[in-house]
Amino acid sequence: MARKPKAEGAASRLWKASPLTFVTLIAAAIVSFFPFYWMVVIASRTNDAIGSVPPPLTPGGNLFDNIGRVLDNENAAFVTGLTNSLIISTVVTVAVVFFSSLAGFAFAKLRFRGQNAMLLIILATMMVPVQLGLIPLYQMMVKFGWQNQLQAVIVPSLVSAWGVFMMRQYVSQTVPDELIEASRVDGASTWRIYWSIVMPALRPAAAVLGLFIFMQTWNDFLWPLTVLQDPANPTVQISLRSLNQAYYTDYSQVFAGTALATVPLAIVFILFGRQIISGIMEGAVKA
């Protein structure tokens, strides 16, 4: 592509962050990190730390001891919980991202009968509070014989109205109609257009969606609690909840478990996050 030297100078000046912005970002980073850090502090201390005034601000030496107690806690079945949650969250995330981008593309760039009505239905679904669906949904699972099975948690979550809507907005903003038309003229099939034009353009948004769906599925509690009745076959959130005593909370153990349950999330974030962090920007700023 041809470059205009003059423009480059003016643009790059504007693209630099001011010192004020920098300070704001540092403040935002501290605010974001503090509760996370504090979780590690409590996880590495004894249960007495939580009520101390002033609160302890440095990690103690009990982290591995507390993690050991989490793993040894028979009621919690923590390792099974982690494994189950990994399976559930992975399958759900892949499915939601795929189905959402496919449907989002169809709604944004294809034309078909009933399109607007369908989109409206999708929008409306998001607006209905899900909690009340629990009982009919549970009865359905009983009919299918899916109680205690992971698919009872997976299948209802395979699609997300929210994901379709997000992808639809993003595709309509990012992929120009002309590009699609041009491909059509060149004889590309709809699938090819989706696969080689839309998908690549969607990567940053797909990363955000995937990240978010993974977190959401990972943190889901009420539905798994209802349908996975066997305490030996929990999700990680149910395991975490079982670390609580009946009437009082052993915070050091709960936070050690929480920290442990956050490790997979951190890994997933780093994987997905690369798309967001190093995504288009690298090329764009240089251009």
Partner: peptide, 28 residues
Amino acid sequence: TRRRFAAVALASVAVLAVTTACGDDGDE
């Protein structure tokens, strides 16, 4: 019932195959 349902939910067939292996049939 289960089979009929699986036939309807075309898209989830693959998923079902993966996950029916995990977990047992509870207390029938």
